[in-house]
Design a protein around this nucleic acid. Structure first.
Lengths: 122, 122
DNA sequence: ATCATAGTTGAACAATCGTTCAACTATTCA
DNA sequence: TGAATAGTTGAACGATTGTTCAACTATGAT
């Protein structure tokens, strides 16, 4: 039986065929990793993490966030749109004011896990 | 007392001053958010997440990963360098072969948290 | 209706990033 | 010593991305 690997691109031989076969069977569909990476991009920007960490403490409107973080309304709004599309934040309108808050507690858990990892580096 | 906000950039008034002041006092130093974002960038790319998820199952060398994921040795090596600098993976050399494995279990926890979030979207 | 303010949006620009390519180092074997 | 293979590295290219700017919508007040 022919090997199932993409040897076209890989300019080397498989060294541990048993391990590779085993792992290959346990990998998720490629689309899952794209989705995961797309989700994680939301935590991969200083502005967005600040917004998320701020919303962890209290719901806020766009103006509050802009003033708090020293950004323009536009910049905040653009980032909130990304976060909303990833279902990381939700919003409710009250007159002219749109209040944003975290959509669920995965946000806090992921951020805390990251901060923990950073603190372990003496 | 003058307001402590960066009103230069923000083209609006603070709407909820009490909330903003409270949150402002609880925010981390700006550098912490940069570091966190820098760390999270490692999970924000399809190739790197596939590498990390594969290493979750078994340690592997560069050739194994390249063959498994259909990438060149160079591409894998570049990404492993990023992951190593972020202390997400560690390596050990055995002759010509360099074996990579996860540095700690934060990687698995963060990835699982992300996958959980994605599955909640029916 | 008119105005002021909160918020959104699309285009554009600069900066960042992933891959490729070619050249390089390191280790083993003959 | 010299060939073969595993792995690393820096430059360069194309693609992605965050912010700005200007124009826009939405709501409330006069």
């Amino acid at each position: 039986m022919a090997p199932e690997f993409d040897l076209d691109l890989c300019d080397c031989e498989v060294i541990h065929e048993d391990v590779v076969n085993k792992v290959r069977g346990a990998l998720l569909p490629g689309e899952d990793y794209s989705d995961l990476a797309q989700l994680m991009k939301n935590f991969a920007d200083g502005t967005r993490v600040r917004i998320l960490h701020a919303l962890e403490m209290h719901e806020m409107c766009v103006c509050d966030l802009a003033a708090l973080l020293g950004l323009t309304k536009s910049a905040v709004s653009h980032q909130l749109k990304n976060l909303r599309l990833a279902r990381l934040v939700k919003n409710r309108r009250e007159g002219q004011v749109v209040y944003y808050s975290l959509a669920d507690d995965h946000v806090k858990l992921i951020i805390d896990m990251g901060l923990e990892h950073l603190q372990e580096e003496k």
